[in-house]
Design a protein around this nucleic acid. Structure first.
Length: 217
DNA sequence: CACCAGGGTGGTT
DNA sequence: AACCACCATGGT
């Protein structure tokens, strides 16, 4: 099958550098990762702005902020009751662990397990946090990557997450490239491949098919 | 009006 | 393990 490195180059050529994650501070990345779940990023931005305006975007402060106040800030991100509650738990976790600097010293696997134990943080959010807030070389597997890989494979069979991680990790191992790749995959998915089952308007389609047919006659 | 957005959780088969 | 309803608001 086609190498992920090729796909990365094609995506970069098509969409340009994305330079994720958009944030001023590291804790803002954790908050944004929670809030963006099943939500358009522009709605998250307004919530972040509101949290900043009220000077709440800090783990120690957010941990002591009444949940009702947090709900007001994040209402426009949807699922606001669950997300506000989860932000409180997240902030208290960071404080209890001794801050982000203390978490930096932990191995990736250990930190990932701790993140997954938190309410509202599943595999994708945990990996995005590891990649963008902790600079760990992690492959973020999302629905866009699954669709892209499935189409590149030319089939309808779904690849397992472990297969996807291997496919990406074998050709892309550095944090900066993995960061850019995830952002590019999302940008590409939003631009062309939103609907199943085709992406007829996708500029990559021709190169994808030729690359697949060449390596897999 | 229907459908989707940078998912995760809990319950049911 | 696979599947499902649910969470809730804002934009197209």
């Amino acid at each position: 099958v086609i190498e992920c490195n090729r796909v990365y180059d094609a995506l970069l050529a098509e969409h340009g550098r994305q330079q994720w994650w958009p944030a001023d501070e590291r804790f803002e990345i954790l908050v944004g990762a929670l809030l963006v779940q099943r939500t358009a990023w522009r709605n998250v931005e307004t919530a972040i702005v509101e949290l900043k305006r009220r000077e709440l975007l800090d783990a120690a402060i957010l941990a002591c902020t009444p949940v009702a106040v947090i709900e007001e800030c994040v209402r426009r991100t949807g699922f606001f009751r669950a997300k506000a509650s989860r932000l409180t738990k997240l902030a208290r976790f960071v404080v209890a662990m001794g801050g982000l600097a203390a978490l930096d010293a932990m191995p990736t696997a250990t930190l990932r397990r701790l993140l997954l134990d938190l309410d509202g943080i599943g595999p994708e959010t945990a990996d995005a946090i590891l990649l963008y807030a902790f600079d760990r070389p992690v492959v973020v597997v999302d629905t866009y990557l699954r669709r892209l890989a499935r189409r590149l494979a030319g089939g309808d069979s779904e690849l397992a997450d472990t297969e996807l991680r291997a496919w990406v990790g074998e050709s892309i191992g550095e944090t900066p490239a993995l960061s850019e790749l995830h952002a590019l995959v999302v940008a590409h998915g939003k631009a062309f491949c939103r609907k199943e089952p085709l992406c007829n308007e996708c500029p990559m389609q021709a190169s994808c098919r030729s690359a697949v047919s060449v390596s897999d006659p």
